[in-house]
Design a protein around this nucleic acid. Sequence first.
DNA 1: TTGTAGGCGTTATCAC
DNA 2: GTGATAACGCCTACAA
Lengths: 346, 346
Amino acid sequence: MSSNVTLKHIAKELGLSAMTVSRALNDRSNVSEKTKKRVIEKAKSMGYTPNHVAKSLVSSKTYTIGVVIPQITHSFFPEVVRGIEEVTNASNYQLFLTNANEEFSREKEAIRTLQSKRVDGLLISSSQDVKDYSFYEEIINSGTVIVFFDRCIENIGASCVSVNDRASSRQITEHLIEVHGYTKIAHLSGPPEVSVGMKRKNGYLDALRSHDLEINNKWITEGGFQEESAQKAMQKLLELPKDEHPEAVVAVNDPSALGAISAIKSAGLSVPDDIAVVGFTDDVRAPLLEVPLTTVHQPAYEVGKRAARRLLRSIDNPDEPAENIEVLTSLKIRQSCGCPPAETNT
Amino acid sequence: MSSNVTLKHIAKELGLSAMTVSRALNDRSNVSEKTKKRVIEKAKSMGYTPNHVAKSLVSSKTYTIGVVIPQITHSFFPEVVRGIEEVTNASNYQLFLTNANEEFSREKEAIRTLQSKRVDGLLISSSQDVKDYSFYEEIINSGTVIVFFDRCIENIGASCVSVNDRASSRQITEHLIEVHGYTKIAHLSGPPEVSVGMKRKNGYLDALRSHDLEINNKWITEGGFQEESAQKAMQKLLELPKDEHPEAVVAVNDPSALGAISAIKSAGLSVPDDIAVVGFTDDVRAPLLEVPLTTVHQPAYEVGKRAARRLLRSIDNPDEPAENIEVLTSLKIRQSCGCPPAETNT
DNA sequence: TTGTAGGCGTTATCAC
DNA sequence: GTGATAACGCCTACAA
């Protein structure tokens, strides 16, 4: 603990009451300019630092927000956090950051602790293995404001900031169908319990259906959100007889696409000639791959800013109804889908 | 704010005193098992959440650590934060994360706020434009424990966890000299006020001196820690007459090396044939570049864990003297230095 | 085993 | 313009 100097100490030194010192330091009108100056100087010379803990206890307001992300190493999330910070910093909030590491148990524990620390609100992107939506409902019912981002839990009264996942997934799948004429398209999905997992899968299915393509369950397999798990899932896919191999793979996100690519390479096949691959995120690594990755660009910074703004509004106005905010994506056509290199690809 | 249920409320419901309820919930020995059970059940049914704010006010302990990083987008830092969290999480601390965005003013403000929030300690990697070391001294003198990591302020009584910057920088520079025979080697430095800026520059100079190479001030230029600023600095270097161009560039970190590479490309030159480039960090992008980047691998996760462990120890034992902890690096030889591609380069 | 008093540092409220 | 009092929710210390 730091600075033990309190209002009382300053008051005693100056022969004033703690209350007057408080008023002076908070620049209230009902203090004489003279004492105000005296107090401020004394406070400085004594090395006074206001105690927000005590202030929070009185005001029931901590100027603190809990941020829970599933994977700090996935480049999408640091970028979101940067956006969040940009907004919250301007309003004098501090951020508690927790990396749940894709474990729901860890996420739950963190959220409980954050509640005990009396955060003014929570920004959450749920972990891969969420099961228990009721947990979030309890938190919301207890009066804590939540805004979800990216991986949302919907219809439980919390706002959600995400991209148009389903439409984007459909769009990139249609690119594979319409531009390249692929008909045998596989999907490495995320867990269906997670919003983006379900939505992106539905977008993929939308595209297939609208083009009357066969939906082959052998080609739809859960690979999770991480490179390693996706690599294993892709390996399994490649154990199918050669004539049942897909021509293209739609991965649920870029780490998953990277996993798929390395499985394809390990099998002695090549991207995109043997199997094309597309992702979702636009990871920093996507444009740098040997075969640059075609993917959906998610404006992570913008998602962070929107989520933070929405949360601050909810905090100031808890009765406003929840809303779903969609930020739009853009397609990044590179070479992993089979497109030729263009001049202006970044 | 959430849960308004307090010990008093539970006490009233049960016809007990708040104190007994407190004891029961904290599992103290001097409460009968019966009332303990009654209390715990009641607390659950009433949705009680302990108020850490009040607890902290009493105990002068917040179980909270402030983490200040200069750039959340530089992949090194999220990885460090992951390491920090791994350690602090196990000891039930929460992390306040602040991204100073390389601005010292922002860093100072954040640190003051964190002090007001009464963090138990601070983990700091200083911003690019630090000037005012006395600021940190004041913080330390006020009794707040600081452990610096990566970018340290030394000799002011705070511990520091970093890599062996000087030796590593010398080593990679010597690789350029000894293996490739380069004699005209430039350095894109960081600001000399920042520890790693100075140390890496000294390592570069050490290498030149020990091989009796000319130290040419035209080839030593400050490019900052970020890609854009380094790119500009490199552009300026390339405005030298062609016969005064360096054969190789030692960049202060990987973002700087990336900036240098794009300046070299823009000038119609190639890496490494016209100018070789080496970095420092081992950014996620380093192995993926068109010409994979030779660089110094920093074990970021390990740096984070060590820094966190050191801080927790300092918190529990404030009188222990500060220490400098060095984590060792390893050279990642790839192709940007002119080495041929090997089989096992990742 | 349980309860009471007092205080952590701050602020709202009412009084002078 | 300034001060006294009580309260925020909890815990230590002492008493019963």
